[in-house]
């Protein structure tokens, strides 16, 4: 059978998630299983030196050991706490800023040049400056995570508000809606999807920024565990920590996606 060919079912429409035929679903496990087998055999036969790639069993044992000693949980909780606080701060500021820029043309005219130029520097680029200004304590982590969150949230909020048809605002002024009512009844429901796009990006950026800042200056957290594993030449610790970082990144995104679906249902249901 040809592998590159016209798909069996050419009726697929754009945007619909492509589902492989049922007989192919289980096949996705094949590659990881083969990889794991090669990894196990390779480690046992000494094809790759253990300092380059420790055996899966070793990684698993390390994971259990880190878990049982409480190190993994403690560091994970610290990282989660940092990311949530930083995200909350950055998202609130981003929402405020984005709403203000979206609703008020004059405000946008004043703020956009500064905001756009500052937004060009990624959170990563702010770290050394922030270190000079606030040191390497908890506030550094919060600031960097917040900076990472703020930009996408503000952009998307502003874009969402801009996308509200102007007729709706005219209607609102006919109904003599107050500014608060405009925001609550018109802007908010119409912009929720776009705001959520921003929040999901923001959370993704927040998590990335946190790992970076913990790699650079930290005495605890998952990023620190990575550094520790690297310096102590324990790649099993590194790999176990990477797995946790991946799982949390996935869980954070999935949680926001679930909320998003729920809100969209609410939005459809509301008049």
């Amino acid at each position: 059978m040809a592998t590159i060919s016209v798909p069996d079912r050419p009726t697929r429409a754009r945007g619909i998630q492509f589902a492989p035929p049922v007989r192919l679903i289980g096949i996705g496990l094949l590659v990881p299983l083969l990889g794991l087998a090669a990894w196990t055999v390779g480690a046992r036969q000494g094809w790759v030196p253990p300092q380059i790639l420790p055996a899966p069993q070793v990684v698993w044992d390390t994971f259990l050991e880190l878990w049982q000693s409480g190190d993994l949980l403690a560091n994970t909780l610290i990282s989660l706490q940092r990311v949530l606080f930083g995200f909350a701060a950055g998202a609130s500021l981003g929402l405020l800023l984005g709403t203000a820029m979206g609703l008020s043309r004059p405000f946008e005219a004043y703020a956009s040049v500064l905001f756009t130029s500052l937004a060009q520097v990624p959170a990563l680029g702010w770290i050394p400056l922030a270190m000079l200004l606030v040191g390497i304590g908890e506030s550094l982590k919060l600031i960097i995570v917040a900076v990472g969150t703020l930009v996408p949230v503000a952009w998307n909020t502003r874009a969402g508000i801009r996308a509200v048809p102007s007729g709706w605002f005219e209607a609102a002024s006919l109904w003599r809606y107050s500014r608060a009512q405009v925001v609550w009844h018109i802007v908010l429901p119409a912009t929720v999807p776009q705001i959520f796009v921003g929040l999901r990006y923001g959370l993704g950026h927040a998590w990335l920024a946190l790992v970076v800042v913990e790699l650079l200056a930290s005495s605890e957290g998952l990023g620190y565990l990575l550094v520790w594993g690297r310096q102590m030449f324990q790649l099993d610790v590194v790999i176990a920590t990477m797995a946790v970082i991946g799982a949390i990144g996935f869980a954070l995104d999935a949680a926001l996606a679930a909320i998003e679906r729920r809100l969209q249902r609410w939005q459809v249901a509301s008049p």
């Binding site: 790699l215 990477m242 991946g246």
Partner: peptide, 19 residues
């Protein structure tokens, strides 16, 4: 064959690959 593995690996925050 490959997409599920790719989707798992891309969950790992980019900078965690550095070590």
């Amino acid at each position: 064959l490959l997409r599920p593995s790719f989707d798992v690996f891309r969950q790992i925050a980019l900078f965690a690959w550095i070590p």
